[in-house]
C-alpha cells in the first residue's frame, strides 16, 4: 500500500521554549486506521495541528498525498479533513448551512445530495435546519465531523473524537469510523481511551513527551508485549502460598481463593505445566483455570512508566 502521510524529522519548539515534538518520523498507509495514544501534553494535538496547517513546524517535513504541506498546501489541505478536539462551531448558523459553507471553503462545488448523505449518516438530517446552539454537545461534535467530511477528504484526523461523549455516542462513533473506512478514507485518531484503539485501529503509535516511542501493528504489539495471566481458582482457600511455589511470577489472590501466575506467551517454556504439576503434588485441589491476555492499556502504562524511569 502507498503511504498517504509521511512525517520526517518533525520538530516543534513553541515560543515559550517548550519542545512539543522531538524529531518525529511516521508513515501512514492509505486506507488504514491509525491510533495515536499518549497522555495529556504528549504532543498528539501539536502533530496534527502542524499537518493540517494550524501550527508552523520548527523543523522537518510533512508530505500528504505526495505534496509538501507548505509548498503544495492547496493540494494537501484539500486532501485532509480535520475534527479538532475543542468544540468550536458557529452557534448562530444552521446545521446544513455550516456544512455547505465548509464544502465551499475547500473549493468544492455545491453538492446537496452529498451533504444530505453525510447528514443522514451522522443522524443529523432531522436537525438540519436547527441552529447549532440548540444542539447538545454530542450533536455539535457530529456537526464538526460532517463539516470535516463535506469536501470528501482522503485523510481524516479525529483529535480525541470521543472525549466527553456518552457511551452510546461513542459506540455510534466507532460504527461511523468503521463505515468511513469502507469508503477508503484513511483515519488518524488520537485518544486517551485505550479500548478505542484496541477496538478500531490497525496500527497504534505511542507518543510521550514529544517522542514517538513505538509504532506497531496492534495485534503484533499486543502479542509482543503481551503477558498472559493464569488464574487457578482453588477448591478450598489456603492461608499462604506454599514455599515450593514462591516466585516473582506467582501470587496468592482473592483472599487465598486463587493463585495467579503471570507468564510470557512467547517464552519457550511458559511454565504452566510445571506449576500445575507442583500444585497437584502439594495436594491443592482447584476447580477452575482461566488465562487472560493483557490489554493495550497495560502495555501503554508500562511503556510510559519505563520511559519515566529511564
Amino acid at each position: 500500500m502507498a503511504s498517504i502521510l509521511t512525517v520526517a524529522g518533525l520538530t516543534k519548539v513553541y515560543a515559550s521554549g517548550f519542545q512539543a515534538l522531538k524529531r518525529v518520523d511516521l508513515s501512514i498507509e492509505e486506507g488504514e486506521i491509525f491510533a495515536l495514544l499518549g497522555p495529556n501534553g504528549a504532543g498528539k494535538t501539536t502533530l496534527i495541528s502542524i499537518i493540517c496547517g494550524l501550527v508552523n513546524p520548527s523543523g522537518g517535513s510533512v508530505t500528504v498525498a505526495g505534496g509538501d504541506i507548505i509548498r503544495d498546501y492547496r493540494d494537501t489541505r484539500s486532501a485532509i479533513g480535520l475534527v479538532p478536539q475543542e468544540l468550536a462551531t458557529d452557534q448562530f448558523e444552521k446545521v446544513i448551512d455550516t456544512v455547505r459553507f465548509s464544502r465551499g471553503l475547500f473549493g468544492k462545488r455545491r453538492d446537496d445530495a452529498l451533504v444530505e448523505k453525510i447528514l443522514r449518516d451522522l443522524s443529523l438530517w432531522d436537525k438540519k435546519d436547527n441552529r447549532i446552539r440548540e444542539l447538545s454537545g454530542g450533536m455539535k461534535r457530529r456537526v464538526m465531523i460532517a463539516k470535516a467530511l463535506s469536501h470528501e477528504p482522503r485523510l481524516l484526523f479525529l483529535d480525541e473524537p470521543t472525549a466527553g461523549v456518552d457511551v452510546e455516542l461513542r459506540r455510534d462513533m466507532w460504527k461511523l469510523i468503521g463505515a468511513l473506512r469502507q469508503t477508503g478514507v484513511t483515519i488518524v485518531l488520537t485518544t486517551h481511551y485505550i479500548e478505542e484503539a484496541e477496538e478500531m485501529a490497525d496500527r497504534v503509535g505511542v507518543i510521550n513527551r514529544g517522542e514517538l516511542l513505538l509504532v506497531e501493528e496492534k495485534r503484533a504489539l499486543m502479542k509482543k508485549l503481551g503477558k498472559k495471566t493464569l488464574t487457578v481458582t482453588l477448591a478450598e482457600p489456603i492461608a499462604q502460598l506454599p514455599a515450593e511455589l514462591a516466585g516473582s511470577a506467582v501470587a496468592l489472590k482473592d483472599g487465598g481463593h486463587a493463585i495467579e501466575y503471570v507468564f510470557d506467551t512467547h517464552a519457550d517454556r511458559t511454565g504452566i505445566s510445571g506449576l500445575l504439576r507442583q500444585i497437584g503434588d502439594l495436594g491443592i485441589a482447584y476447580k477452575d483455570l482461566d488465562t487472560r491476555q493483557s490489554s493495550l492499556e497495560d502495555i501503554f502504562v508500562s511503556l510510559v512508566h519505563q520511559e519515566k524511569a529511564a
Partner: peptide, 14 residues
Amino acid sequence: FTGTIYELQSAPVS
C-alpha cells in the same frame, strides 16, 4: 475567539 478559525487555517485558502 470561538475557535472556529481552525477551519479557515486548515482550508486551501491563501
